[in-house]
Amino acid sequence: MERYLLHFKNEKYLPQNCRDLARKGRDLVSDMNVSVRLARVATKFIEFDIAAEKEDLDTLVKRLSLIGDVDNVRHVVEEHITKDKGIEDGIFYYNNERFWECHEAFEGVWKQCYGREKELVQGIILVAVAFAHQQENEESIGIGMLSRALEKLGTSPSMYHSIDVDKIRKHVIEMQKANKLTRFEI
């Protein structure tokens, strides 16, 4: 089986609905050889993390479309891309609330880094993963990750490519004080 991230337009669901949506998704495909691992709820879409055979994908998407209109289907495979492309993709995914994909993109960057740069990228990854937990209605886990993210971001330079690291640090500190994850763009 292959792994896919399926995005459906969201008009009414909140992260608190993620487990019910995962169950509903499993019910809609219960007679198929697929695995609905989990659902994440973002402002504009619902993301299903799925394991399925490629030949079942069209039927799977059609059935899950009862939850919302399909927005995006992505086959999850380890990509070997340049550091610059990984950063560009990571920023795009982060700013579009596709936090798990942001994590994956920056993990590809992280694998190409050494020393202090590696830690900085890991800090960015941890912020993205914190928001992915929020989308799974696990905000307290996400908030708990902020200390580690801040530690990894450390006193790194204020800019990393086009990413304002000072802005990230500032938001992380504010979220820690408020004990609440608040989305921002990077």
Results as ranks from 00 to 15, higher is better:
60 L>R: 01
150 L>V: 01
25 G>H: 02
174 E>C: 13
76 V>G: 02
127 V>W: 00
86 G>L: 00
29 V>K: 02
93 Y>W: 13
153 L>I: 15
68 G>P: 04
175 M>E: 11
186 I>R: 06
126 L>D: 06
114 Y>F: 13
134 Q>S: 10
89 D>P: 05
3 R>K: 12
51 A>C: 14
175 M>G: 07
79 E>K: 13
25 G>P: 01
89 D>S: 15
164 D>Y: 03
93 Y>T: 08
151 E>W: 08
124 I>M: 12
17 N>H: 12
96 N>S: 13
55 E>Y: 14
147 S>C: 10
67 I>Q: 01
185 E>W: 06
157 P>R: 15
68 G>L: 06
63 R>L: 09
178 A>D: 13
109 V>H: 05
183 R>D: 14
105 A>M: 04
98 R>C: 09
59 T>L: 15
45 F>D: 09
68 G>H: 06
183 R>P: 04
129 V>F: 01
85 K>E: 12
50 I>P: 00
95 N>A: 03
35 S>C: 10
180 K>R: 14
139 E>D: 03
123 G>M: 08
38 L>V: 07
1 M>T: 10
73 V>R: 11
156 S>R: 09
144 G>S: 00
113 C>R: 03
28 L>D: 04
98 R>G: 07
41 V>H: 08
173 I>Y: 04
184 F>Q: 04
61 V>E: 14
78 E>C: 00
68 G>D: 05
68 G>Q: 03
23 R>K: 07
157 P>N: 13
127 V>M: 00
33 N>I: 14
14 L>T: 12
174 E>L: 13
185 E>P: 00
96 N>L: 12
8 F>Y: 15
72 N>R: 12
139 E>W: 02
121 V>F: 03
24 K>Y: 01
99 F>S: 00
15 P>C: 00
42 A>T: 02
51 A>E: 13
12 K>T: 03
41 V>I: 11
26 R>V: 09
